[in-house]
Lab assay of single mutants.
Amino acid sequence: SLTLTVRGEEAVRRWYKWAQAHNLEVEVETHGDEYVLHIK
């Protein structure tokens, strides 16, 4: 499992696509303009 902090929706989309390509689940938490992604 992997936890990432990114800024901006574009980065979130990029990681989301990456995770889907690897059959992984993604949980997204929003903290202001930062997003915490939990990839499992």
Rank of each mutant, 00 (worst) to 15 (best):
S1M: 13
S1K: 12
S1D: 13
S1V: 15
S1P: 10
S1T: 15
S1Q: 13
L2F: 15
L2E: 03
L2T: 05
L2A: 04
T3M: 08
T3W: 07
T3Y: 05
T3I: 13
T3P: 03
L4K: 04
L4P: 02
L4W: 04
L4V: 15
L4Q: 03
T5V: 15
T5W: 07
T5P: 03
T5I: 15
T5K: 13
T5F: 07
T5A: 07
V6E: 02
V6A: 03
V6N: 01
R7I: 12
R7T: 11
R7K: 13
R7Y: 13
R7S: 09
R7P: 03
G8S: 15
G8M: 03
G8V: 03
G8C: 07
E9H: 09
E9D: 08
E9R: 11
E9V: 14
E9Q: 11
E10C: 12
E10N: 08
E10V: 08
E10D: 12
E10T: 08
E10K: 10
E10R: 10
E10I: 08
A11C: 13
A11G: 05
A11H: 06
A11P: 03
A11M: 10
V12R: 05
V12M: 15
V12T: 03
V12W: 06
V12S: 04
V12I: 08
R13S: 08
R13N: 11
R13G: 06
R13Y: 09
R13E: 11
R13T: 09
R13V: 08
R14H: 08
R14Q: 12
R14T: 07
R14P: 02
R14S: 08
W15I: 13
W15S: 01
W15M: 05
W15V: 10
Y16G: 03
Y16S: 09
Y16H: 08
K17Q: 13
K17N: 10
K17F: 10
K17P: 01
K17R: 12
W18Y: 07
W18R: 01
W18E: 01
W18L: 03
W18P: 00
A19S: 03
A19V: 05
A19R: 00
A19D: 00
A19E: 00
A19L: 08
A19Q: 01
A19G: 03
Q20E: 12
Q20H: 10
Q20M: 14
Q20L: 14
Q20A: 13
Q20V: 13
Q20R: 12
A21D: 13
A21G: 06
A21F: 12
A21I: 11
A21E: 14
A21L: 13
H22P: 00
H22A: 05
N23W: 05
N23T: 04
N23K: 08
N23D: 09
N23Q: 08
N23I: 03
L24T: 02
L24W: 12
L24R: 06
L24M: 13
L24V: 06
L24K: 05
E25K: 11
E25W: 13
E25N: 10
E25M: 12
E25Y: 14
E25L: 13
V26R: 00
V26T: 03
V26M: 15
V26Y: 07
V26N: 00
V26A: 03
V26L: 13
V26Q: 01
V26H: 01
E27V: 14
E27H: 12
E27S: 13
E27Y: 14
E27N: 09
E27D: 09
E27C: 13
V28A: 04
V28W: 07
V28D: 01
V28H: 04
V28I: 14
V28F: 07
V28N: 02
E29H: 09
E29A: 07
E29Q: 09
E29R: 08
E29W: 10
E29L: 09
E29M: 09
E29D: 06
E29G: 04
T30I: 15
T30L: 13
T30S: 13
T30E: 14
T30W: 09
T30Y: 11
T30A: 14
T30V: 15
T30N: 13
T30D: 10
T30Q: 15
H31V: 12
H31M: 11
H31T: 08
H31D: 10
H31G: 04
H31F: 12
H31W: 10
G32R: 04
G32Y: 04
G32W: 03
G32P: 04
G32D: 07
G32A: 05
G32S: 04
G32N: 06
G32Q: 05
G32F: 05
D33S: 08
D33W: 04
D33I: 06
D33G: 08
D33Y: 06
D33M: 06
D33T: 07
D33N: 10
D33L: 07
E34V: 15
E34T: 14
E34K: 11
E34W: 15
E34F: 15
E34D: 09
E34H: 15
Y35K: 03
Y35I: 07
Y35R: 03
Y35S: 03
V36P: 00
V36M: 06
V36T: 11
L37V: 08
L37E: 00
L37R: 00
L37S: 00
L37Q: 00
L37F: 04
L37Y: 01
L37K: 00
H38N: 06
H38E: 03
H38Y: 11
H38V: 11
H38C: 10
I39S: 00
I39A: 01
I39F: 14
I39Y: 02
K40S: 12
K40D: 04
K40P: 04
K40Y: 15
K40H: 14
K40M: 10
K40E: 04
K40A: 07
